[in-house]
């Protein structure tokens, strides 16, 4: 099962490292990363495999949200189906 992690906010040192650490600690495999500056904001998108995730999805989501709050960033983790269904016919 794949999910998409998005990180949006002001660019600071260590975003990728910290998000990746949460992933690694919870058995989430990072498959692809893209990042860009969008309208002056930092935007990172990670495609991850959560089939080996060691905690329930909601807990992973809470951990990433907490990390985002502590760094002043908005971090979402969402099942990839939501994007597929909205943007693909």
């Amino acid at each position: 099962m794949r999910a998409v992690i998005t990180v949006i906010g002001k660019d600071t040192v260590g975003i990728l490292a910290k998000v990746s650490t949460v992933c690694a600690e919870n058995g989430v495999n990072v498959m692809d990363v893209t990042q860009s500056i969008l309208q002056g904001m930092f935007a990172m998108i990670m495609m991850v495999d959560i089939s080996g995730c060691t905690v329930p999805f909601s807990e992973l989501s809470d951990k990433l949200t907490d990390l985002g709050d502590s760094m002043g960033l908005r971090i979402h983790v969402m099942h990839e189906d939501i994007f597929n269904s909205m943007h693909r016919i």
Binding site: V4, T6, I8, A43, M47, E80, F83, N84, M86
Partner: peptide, 10 residues
Amino acid sequence: LNSHDILETI
């Protein structure tokens, strides 16, 4: 998926 679509949803 492309990043534009993902960011649009977010």
